[in-house]
Design a protein around this nucleic acid. Structure first.
Lengths: 225, 225, 225, 225
DNA sequence: TATGAATGAGCTTTCATTCAT
DNA sequence: CATGAATGAAAGCTCATTCAT
């Protein structure tokens, strides 16, 4: 974690450094991030960097806590519209709210995603962070099986893997598209984008195959509620 | 692409270089790959490297064509057992055969996956490679819609994205597990592994939700054929 | 020498700083001593260091005076048992009492020895300190020659050099061994250790050669050849 | 050990590098030696240094072998004048010839002495080098005791320590004085300097005390009191 | 007087690339 | 063609010292 020095800094300066770090990680990942560039872009001396942080990983660790904190703040204010949600409705709500959050902090999310879901696979430093989200998804699915919402023969671990992959894929897709928009937030909240997300999650729910319990029927029914 | 000098090399030498490059990329990715190490491990002179290739990316580009070529060779010999496959059966066959291929060339696949699906997302150099597989999947889905196998309201691009993600996820999951096995090929072909793959693809086909046309029923039915 | 601000400090704080400095010099010598570590270990601000001392050498110079002062205090209370000592007895007493002193202040002695007899040889800053002990030894030997205890043909400067080297060698030998003991003081005063010192000093006194004949005779004989 | 690259260098260049390294170690010791300065003074690029050597220690290790080699070459041509030397005569010859050698390669000797007998005490990397000279001295003394030249009650390890210290003290004394001379070699070989060395060694042989009585008698007498 | 943030020069080491032989 | 020595920029990090508060 950053040294006390860092937190004593005037907010403006602190934010400049954080911004430079986020940009650097978003652009180059963790291994290839250059402290030289970070200090150049934040206008501080090289020595100062080491008075604020232990090293590169230290900055990144801090960004993780920032993300976590901001996410909690963001989710705290949002409540699922209905209490009577089944697991799929809940997951859909989570993903959508997550998308909104991502569109509010796109660079931060991008920086961390890049490191966590790419480099992160190769060196194990932040495994515990991923662990947490995995566990809550496991609980969600187990509950859904008990409730008869998910087929009991489904392998829980595989389902978790699918949901995570899904969520990340949507996330990176939305972000990549969104970055080109002027107002990302608005774009994410637009009916068009929301429908795209819906469709994706719908596939996860019902699969791609057309069944007797027909695709269109289900889709319309659900949206009527 | 490599310079003519490279292709004039005796095969043994060429393969030694390729092997060293594959190991390097698999271990360090593209950006962190060290030409120093590649030449050291392949026993060629540093200057020679630059007489064979433009730079690091050049070697990697070549590995891409190698992969493509080997894949085509491999798939050429395999034919779907039945001519009367629907799109899902075909995709399932493709994925499974792909898995087998991956287990035969695990290092090459690992090297390229690592770069393409991690670093590759961020700098656009190899977009055209991904393009090709995308296009064939698009065609597959369009055909399936025409055949009434896939719901027409499904967004083709999203479906492609899902299928690609799916395939990569399975691939990396299988590889990560498989690398620990003594005989990867055998492990991939084992009933256990095949069932895991089946389950994953089944979810893509029918979704996670339990419907009247019940999971187990569908699953058993299909496997009876 | 330290600035007045240093001497105005409460004793506790002053000692904490000194302790940290001693540890640092004992561990790293003068050149490699890190002011950063000294301030960290003594709990003072970095800026404060420069309000107390000019620089690293300044601290070390002060440690020299501390050693000198402590030594004088220590020797003040000890008196040779007998007034009728010859030079060798006196030197033996001095060395032994010196050893005891060293075992009471082992870290301080270690710190200063390390710098003075290693790095110190190469840059001349502290020559005057060594000068003083040299002079008293010169006087001792001259007196011994007058008393007929030491051969008049002995070169006084060389004899001093020998005695100094001897004393330092014993000192570092004893310290190195002693540091491993729980109670250094007791170990130094033990019969065993005292005998070792005796033997060493005995060699200085009588030489290594077994002989029945006297000093002058041997010396002349050899030079005649 | 240096890489082959280094030995392929033209002799002139090689010597320039070695000279710069010797000067650096002589001036700053091993820990404080700066590769930056070495490359600056030898006129090579910083990267080149690492094509010749592993690191600082590697250069120093090489200097050790150079010294050893030069010493063997030098001693090979010198033979003790008489075959019938006793241990003291032999040691005297060794020390004197060693002095001559040192005056021929004063900087190299200075560089290595500085590291070996100062820093070397604290980190154990080159302990084996010192070991060798220690062992040959042990053998010399044991032989001398068997021959009746050295008193059997003398502790062998202590005697070795004395001889080593003696030899180093003389060495550094001579070097320090000699460096001020125009022609060191000539100065070392001068009657005056030789006599000084003789006197020092004589003290080691016979001790400082003027005495008509023999070793054993004195020792017993003193201990009886 | 006390503080500790700021600083840039310095450190060792690795790197991709050039080029003379 | 093959070679490998040469190179300087860049990396992460530590340092003694200054200075505004």
């Amino acid at each position: 974690m950053p040294k006390p020095t860092f937190f004593n800094l005037p907010e403006e300066k602190r934010e400049k450094i954080i911004k430079a770090a986020i940009d650097e990680f978003a652009e180059y990942g963790l291994e290839n991030a250059s402290i030289n560039r970070i200090v150049a872009n934040s206008g501080i001396a090289k020595g100062s960097f080491y008075q604020y942080f232990e090293d590169k990983q230290d900055v990144f660790r801090y960004l993780l806590t920032v993300l976590e904190h901001e996410k909690m703040e963001y989710f705290k204010d949002k409540h699922p519209e209905s209490r009577h949600m089944d697991a799929f409705e809940y997951f859909r709500w989570m993903v959508k709210t997550g998308m909104e959050f991502n569109s509010v902090y796109p660079r931060l999310v991008q920086a961390i995603s890049r490191v966590m879901f790419n480099e992160g696979l190769y060196y194990q430093n932040f495994a515990n962070v991923r662990e947490r989200s995995t566990q809550s998804l496991q609980a969600l699915i187990r509950q859904a099986i008990q409730n008869g919402e998910v087929d009991p023969s489904v392998d829980v671990d595989l389902a978790v893997m699918i949901m995570e992959t899904w969520s990340n894929t949507i996330s990176s897709y939305i972000l990549n598209e969104g970055m080109k928009q002027q107002d990302i937030v608005q774009w994410v909240r637009s009916a068009e984008t929301q429908e795209k997300i819906d469709k994706l999650l719908y596939v996860m729910e019902y699969g791609l195959r057309r069944t007797e319990s027909d695709f269109a029927k289900n889709f319309q029914e659900r949206n009527r509620l």
